[in-house]
Design a protein around this nucleic acid. Structure first.
Lengths: 218, 218
DNA sequence: TGTCAACTGTACTGTTGGTACTGCATCGGC
DNA sequence: GCCGATGCAGTACCAACAGTACAGTTGACA
């Protein structure tokens, strides 16, 4: 690990391969994405491809790494912007979830797919390295959202007994399940609606119920 | 649709191919499952395979059909058994969800994977026929659970404004997302815990909050 | 006895992932 | 001004795999 070894070769071509691969993989999966197809899209030779990636698994690893980094950035950005809008941990989290739903809703052709899920359903094809990368990404997201939930729980004691790790995981589960749902029934809005449902759940878990004078919820 | 045309050829061999294919596909995906591997497992020739399935896509279709039928049976069974235990629609649904979580928890190696999700992430590989089959399966599940939620909502007016179609879809989303979660972090119990979280959400949506004399939730 | 379902065997095609080289232009450093 | 590394292109080849074609075999049943 030198000083700038990480991503020391932007080189254009490598990035172009990754771009072509990402679009293809998310739309039809790793198996259906051929190397020939990628080199044709980029305009290089097979040798050129294998110069950058020793095999398809190396491509998968690079693809997943880049995808996770981008997702991390999006989450960081959303959470930060939400924090700027409210100092209350619960309100901030609810704002962030709404922003996330809006991001999903604004994708013109629906969410292109989750690389993590794509990798998950191709397990045996990759080395343990790729699977470990996937696992760490999910555990990282859990940690990130769990921190938020902890801060919320301090101020708003949960009204039901839920494990906060599970509640953090649920966002990822709802998102991945929502992507599958959206794609399968061809309804791009199903995903953002599922995220909003998760939001409603979080609200119900931590918010006090709005109770009218009659004792009935409003 | 004749009288007994459906599944008119149990023939043993065909079923054996489907069994071998189901295990292989769920563990490593369609792409990584070779025909040679399947015929070796069953002990037939390549010609034998192509006698039963004209190509790999036909295998996928048959596999998906069988999978959906089995899932339908499981859901029917769980809902029926739950109905026997309680006449109240909410309680019955909550019982069914707990049963479902227990079924998932009792699978020795965790849930093997969802064929619907597997097909979803291989979209372009199959004809529209297979994708339509997938879509119909999900819409069918939505309808089934939506009916339950309607009956619940009649007796227990929802405390928050949620779309019942979305709430029905959420079970499928949480299940598929939970499977991905479980497989990726190697925790077979993550899936049943996610189902129980969904159950908690349903309970919160429809149940009146338990409020103590002080007005604080218990 | 003939027919049909359920196969086996053989031979072939085309695609794909992957290996193993050799060649070649370009560019920075000495 | 040459030296080596980077970043490719070109060629040749192999094995695994999906799929096609078609001829032959076996057992059950009418």
């Amino acid at each position: 690990m030198g000083i700038v070894t990480r991503d020391a070769k932007p080189s254009g071509t490598r990035t172009q391969i990754l771009d072509a691969a990402e679009a293809a993989v998310l739309s039809k999966g790793f198996g259906a994405t051929s190397i020939d197809e990628l080199i044709a899209a980029v305009g290089i030779s097979r040798s050129g491809f294998f110069y950058h990636f020793k095999d398809k698994s190396a491509l998968a690893k690079a693809l997943l790494q880049r995808y996770i980094e981008e997702d991390d950035k999006i989450f960081d950005d959303v959470l930060r912007r939400a924090d700027e809008l409210s100092e209350d941990p619960l309100h901030s989290y609810l704002i962030a979830l709404k922003m996330l739903a809006e991001i999903f809703a604004d994708l013109p052709n629906g969410h292109p797919g989750c690389m993590v899920a794509s990798v998950c359903y191709h397990e045996q094809l990759f080395q343990r390295e790729v699977r470990d990368l996937n696992e760490q990404a999910i555990l990282n997201w859990r940690r990130r959202f769990r921190e938020r939930l902890d801060r919320i729980a301090e101020r708003y004691p949960p009204r039901v007994d839920v494990d906060l790790d599970d509640l953090a995981d649920m966002l990822m589960a709802v998102a991945d399940g929502g992507i599958i749902l959206s794609r399968t029934i061809h309804d791009p809005m199903a995903l953002p609606r599922q995220v909003m449902l998760y939001r409603e759940f979080v609200r119900l878990v931590f918010s006090e119920p709005v109770v009218t004078a009659t004792g009935r919820p409003a």
